[in-house]
């Protein structure tokens, strides 16, 4: 919490960017320390390449692979969220659907994705489709659970209010359930954004000829640790950027509550 005193100080303008400034300074220091240690202690490049070497390894090839992983991630994310929300709507409106599908959803959640990935490659090939499927599968459950929770989050009084005006089911859905669920859905999007990257990369580990997971795997065979690092950073960057974008959307559009959803 910023106090009023700090706002009035000459450095006040900098204080507003605390959240950005502190991590940037810290990470820069870390990188410098890393660079120096590698040279001072003469650490072999296959164990730990210097940050400058990792930067050198970031070429147009890496951009192409990042693009592949990014596409898989986005498609997986999109499919999982649309499907997850749709199934959640079915759950909330049709009890038999929930009763029959919920155990399946739990089973899906408890099955390790790593165990399924080879099967997906067998079914869908080594192209993007198997990675999109892996990504969508890992995202699906959190989206479903949060959406159901959100759609059910309306209180008894709101429900009565709508019934007092003889609101139709459609009206209750569009004007009450849907907006009430948005904070929960937004958390689901944020959770699944990180998971989507994991799914895509696990898929690429199993069988691929492009993508960041593929780069990590191949570079490990050749001990090209600098390339491996560049790919790891790229993957982390996708996840981070994705999360930040969603966070910004959340703050802008779901202005009415941050609490309540998790």
């Amino acid at each position: 919490m910023r106090t009023d005193v700090s706002r009035r100080m000459p450095l006040g303008i900098l204080k507003r960017y605390d959240a950005l400034l502190y991590p940037l300074v810290f990470i820069s220091l870390l990188l410098v320390a890393w660079e120096v240690s590698v040279h001072v202690f003469d650490i072999p490049a296959y164990m730990l390449p210097a940050p400058s070497d990792v930067l050198d390894a970031m070429d147009s090839d890496l951009i192409n692979h990042t693009w592949v992983t990014l596409q898989e991630t986005l498609w997986g994310f999109l499919i999982a969220n649309i499907a997850g929300f749709f199934v959640a709507v079915m759950f909330v409106h049709f009890r038999p659907v929930e009763l029959s599908l919920f155990p399946v959803a739990i089973a899906l959640k408890t099955t390790p994705l790593v165990a399924l990935a080879p099967l997906l490659v067998v079914w869908l090939g080594t192209g993007m489709a198997s990675k999109i499927a892996a990504s969508a599968l890992i995202c699906f459950f959190p989206v479903l659970i949060n959406s159901v929770k959100g759609l059910r989050s309306i209180d008894a009084e709101s429900d009565e209010l709508f019934r007092t005006y003889q609101a139709s089911r459609q009206e209750i859905f569009w004007k009450l359930r849907l907006p009430a669920s948005l904070p929960y859905v937004m958390s689901a999007l944020k959770i699944s954004s990180s998971l989507a990257v994991v799914g895509a990369i696990v898929g690429e580990f199993v069988g691929a000829n492009a993508g960041l997971g593929y780069v990590v795997l191949v570079s490990s065979y050749h001990l090209d640790t600098d390339i491996m690092f560049s790919a790891i950073f790229a993957a982390a960057f996708i996840g981070l950027a994705f999360f930040w974008i969603l966070e910004a959307i959340d703050r802008h559009f779901i202005f009415w509550q941050q609490e309540g959803a998790d």
Partner: peptide
């Protein structure tokens, strides 16, 4: 809201 719900 009270004007935009229901049959009436």
């Amino acid at each position: 809201l009270s004007l935009s719900l229901g049959p009436q």
